[in-house]
Design a protein around this nucleic acid. Structure first.
Lengths: 219, 219
DNA sequence: GTAATGTTTTACCAACCGGTCAAATTATCA
DNA sequence: TGATAATTTGACCGGTTGGTAAAACATTAC
């Protein structure tokens, strides 16, 4: 019998696992470069090397594909922030957070662009995640940063905007890759740009957050 | 006679000026939120309050509309960088560059998102601009920053990555607005967030680029 | 006023879109 | 092996898309 994918509660077939994997991989490619509305099922099917109805056998709608993809990617995407450790040394925590985010921009640029597209277009599919789990995680880590500042371990600053700054500067190398490479030119567009970026950003944030000698650190 | 818009080399009518203005305004709205492929002519026509064929009388293709919009917006978008003054005081130049970019993110978020969408999706329509005029302008300003560093007025750093960092942190507040407001929560989502951001970013960049006492400023 | 030009609308088209259906094919397992 | 369930395909559908044709309508210049 032909059961719609969603109705099958039993164990998944080997073929199912493989094909769903294949489809999500292709979907990541397509959604990341064209956004949800700009992507077509045919495109994804072609990248995945299968026919459109076949693809729709595994995910019944374009929306279901997108949602499955987001769910799968979102959790891991927040790993670096989750590892941010209240007990650790502030400077090295921030430094390694930057490095890890930059590694993700280098190694998983499609994932970064998937979210960038989604948020840029008003986050119609993940607004709940933003205001729920994401906000809670950021609130928690912002509190950690604030306590560091209060303890005099780093300069006083708005922890939310600090997190935004780390997000934006690092993800820039994934999301705006074409621009970065266009501006740097052919010869500086090798993988070395991530090393240069890491060096610069660590300098910027570490010095920028260093406690100021002589008390007040207002600008 | 009905001449296609492009063939008319003569002076433009009052109506033409008005309608083209109206259309580009609507196009900015739509392209900025959905990207090129995700936008439809019908949508733009509706926002502009005119019929689709009427709209196509002024811009013969969707592509032509998009190109006209980009051309119109790109030049002004680079104004703040252009004003970056080699003769000025380094710290206050950088500081006012940040402030102006942040003001643009606040006052012209659609323009920012238009480019963000375009670049995110591989910059298919503006690659030449990136590698040409934009690169030249950045090269020029990077040289200025480098000379400041050499003269010991600011810390040594990669000027290109500095510019990227300023771009990304400021544009973040336009492009990722939904996320920013989602994370900050209702009560902190007023216009005040731009003030907070400005304060944080000025602190970050000014302190982060301050010359280190005692010679070497390696991280 | 009227003729020429500029603007808008109605009706339309072919291609594409997300999605369905039923039949054909393949894998699984007793 | 054969029955059964899982997978794949081609043909198709109604709605949308970018874009056209021609005629109706408005504006301008003389």
């Amino acid at each position: 019998m032909v059961l719609p994918r969603a109705a099958r509660t039993q164990r998944r077939t080997r073929i199912q696992e493989e094909k769903e994997e294949l489809i999500l991989e292709a979907a990541l490619d397509v959604f990341a470069t064209h956004g949800f509305r700009g992507s077509t099922i045919d495109q994804i099917a072609e990248v995945a090397g299968m026919s459109k109805p076949n693809l729709l056998y595994y995910f019944r709608t374009k929306d279901a594909m997108h949602r499955a993809l987001i769910d799968r990617v979102l959790y891991n995407w927040l790993d670096p922030l989750r590892e941010f450790d209240a007990e650790g040394n502030p400077v090295s925590e921030i430094r390694s957070y930057i490095r890890r985010k930059l590694e993700m921009a280098r190694d998983f640029p499609r994932e970064s662009r998937l979210f960038a597209n989604e948020i840029l277009q008003g986050a119609p599919h993940i607004e709940d995640e933003l205001k729920g789990p994401l906000k809670e995680l950021v609130d928690e880590k912002a509190e950690v940063i604030r306590s560091w500042a209060k303890a005099g371990k780093i300069a006083k600053c708005d922890p939310y905007h600090l997190i935004f700054a780390i997000w934006s500067t690092t993800q820039h190398y994934a999301d705006f890759d074409v621009q970065v490479r266009g501006v740097l030119g052919e010869e500086r567009s090798g993988e070395g740009r991530f090393e240069d970026a890491a060096r610069f950003l660590e300098q910027l944030f570490v010095h920028g957050l260093e406690i100021r000698e002589g008390g007040v650190d207002a600008v």
